[in-house]
Design a protein around this nucleic acid. Structure first.
Lengths: 137, 137
DNA sequence: AGTAATACGCATTGTAAATACCAAATCAGG
DNA sequence: CCTGATTTGGTATTTACAATGCGTATTACT
């Protein structure tokens, strides 16, 4: 069971931003701090902004910051958004599914239920529970 | 959020075997029926046997069959075994982890809890709930 | 013996994530 | 109204690893 690094990075971004609210973070800033690819991180930030979790501002002095208070951002929702295009198993992607059991399969619904349980369990926490406080401040 | 096809195939094998107990299935039989790779499936069967879920017998007339009654095989346990080497996120694989937040991260424990919730939810069902009945018998 | 099957290691392939690159759009500040 | 900094979006490339293939050894039934 795996989440993509895309999702992983998204969570790191949110936790870090919650640690220093009111600061606008550029993609370059965060990429340097996390020591990961700047370009890839830029896309993660785009996705978070598209989901309404971040507000971004372009141009000089621009950057991104949280669009809502950390306590109003539920972790499960974040994961669900960032993993939206990931099929848990092959048959969840109906267009490329080749499983011969599909017509009579009684497992699929149970897997979907478990996936929902995963998200629901995460939703018991909000970003406020996972604030990352930078080293020295 | 994704499970490997390795796990997917493992579940298919178990469901199919539960549909026709007392029959020994060879890897070739199942691969043909599912229209998937015979070699890959053989490894899945090995893993299931190593986990004590299947009994295998070599030689002519050999094959594999369930080691326990379907109602005594919990789905969450199966998934947990087959996904054992899959790290949910990078920091779960401590030897290759490069996340700079790790020392003060308050997210990891929550992710682990959610993963356990996923397995626990699946464990509400057993293989007996997911028997696959072949087309015409 | 001969045959049918698993078991296992290693090589190869294929695919998708991760990353890099580039051009365009946008904005702050002088 | 420039100019430099930044996001945005698209495409291309790289890379990692799951998936597959294959050969050999091993085991066991007939």
């Amino acid at each position: 069971m795996r989440l993509t690094s895309f999702t992983d990075y998204g969570l790191r971004v949110l936790m870090r931003m919650a640690g220093t609210p009111d600061r606008a973070f550029t993609a370059a800033d965060l990429a340097a701090e996390f020591r990961i690819s700047r370009n890839h991180l830029a896309k993660v930030i785009s996705a978070l902004a598209a989901a309404g979790l971040l507000e971004t501002r372009r141009g000089g002095g621009g950057g991104a910051m949280l669009a809502r208070a950390p306590k109003d951002i539920r972790l499960g929702d974040v994961v669900a958004v960032l993993e939206a295009d990931q099929a848990l198993v092959e048959c969840f992607a109906s267009d490329t599914n080749t499983c011969t059991l599909t017509p009579h399969c009684r497992l699929k619904a149970r897997l979907a239920h478990a996936e929902a349980a995963f998200v629901a369990d995460l939703n018991r926490s909000t970003l406020a529970d996972c604030v990352y406080r930078p080293e020295s401040t």
